[in-house]
Design a protein around this nucleic acid. Structure first.
Lengths: 189, 189
DNA sequence: ACCAATATATGTTGGATTGATATATAAAAT
DNA sequence: ATTTTATATATCAATCCAACATATATTGGT
């Protein structure tokens, strides 16, 4: 899957400009799927318009540069469906925070504690935002994705909160007994 | 943070070759921190050796090309510490699976169900692997990271397992009542 | 015994991608 | 009044990745 598919997917929800696509892909509801920057979005939109997967209408604006609003065509929807039908690649998760924690024995305790509490706050904020975003969702697809985000971010938030007392040199007594080999799946119903 | 810091971090745990670093960075215990490929690792190692952050000894092997084993120097450790002290960037999470789920209304139910059950299996397998990896860990840093992985992967696994009955068109009755505004944090102690 | 595939090991390269920058204006904040 | 932020498109140097090339050992199937 590539930048083309991301654009087609976003445009399948409604018309948009390159600028709007970038915003959605880096911050908004579309920020956890495929990476995107201006340098890849604008050429992709131009090429796909040439290939008749998109149409483009210019809206001349007072002062501002022309707004190029892109719409998906039937050929574009077909290409989107094809792309969505290929097996998804493995999820990609990269965390500099975890890298720092992994190396924490080489850092001093105060700094690590500060990093941890800072991350706890970030996670709490982000979780709250995801919850707020999810409240007005009605369609199954977006609801599923939001629920997934809440589940995963909630777990990360809980874990960091419970380990704020992490020590770089000593294993906390509260951590040790947890390594029970049996899974303890609670029947959550 | 960049590829240089990743290499320094890996080498701070022990000497390694470029080939070994690549393996660890794409599959092993170091696969969730910074992205890396041969095209970036080999030049980084060469340059850092020139800068005296690393030393390199060649081990001539029978037949095979010379094995270049890199070791971190004190200057390297200093640079690592500096890099680790800078504020970590936001975690990066990208999932084509979630993109497909988001767009599921444009796909047929059977295909989506198949994707879901396939992902459920993948998550279960991966979770089991993380649990196995974590059993022999003793140092606090690696234990923290492994615990984080278990928490997050466990949550993803639970969520997908509970939503195998996901429908592309209808919101399942079992999903609707869940959107309670209060958090229901169960005291896990 | 033979062959194919995989693993070890280093390195290069074409094409793609990013992050920064340039341009231009409006609105909001200080 | 002035700085910052937001809207909006586009380019480009620097970087990076995926794939390939090279060379040999090992494993596993037939």
């Amino acid at each position: 899957m590539n930048i083309r598919t991301l654009c087609l997917g976003i445009l399948s929800f409604g018309d948009a400009t390159g600028y709007e696509i970038k915003k959605m892909a880096e911050d908004g509801l579309f920020s956890h799927f495929v990476e995107a920057s201006y340098g890849s979005i604008y050429p992709a939109l131009t090429r796909m318009t040439d290939e008749d997967l998109l149409t483009c209408r210019s809206e001349t604006q007072d002062g501002k540069p022309d707004k190029k609003i892109y719409s998906i065509t039937q050929a574009g929807r077909d290409e989107l469906t094809t792309a969505l039908t290929t097996r998804p690649k493995k999820d990609k998760f990269k965390s500099e925070f975890l890298f720092i924690m992994l190396m924490s024995e080489h850092l001093d305790q105060d700094h690590v504690s500060e990093v941890l509490s800072h991350r706890a706050q970030e996670l709490a904020d982000e979780l709250e935002m995801i919850r707020a975003c999810g409240e007005h969702l009605t369609k199954p697809g977006p609801r599923f994705v939001n629920g997934y985000g809440q589940a995963v971010m909630g777990a990360a938030n809980d874990y960091v909160s419970k380990n704020l007392n992490f020590s770089t040199t000593q294993i906390e007594p509260s951590e040790v007994p947890e390594r029970s080999p049996h899974v303890t799946v609670e029947a959550a119903e």
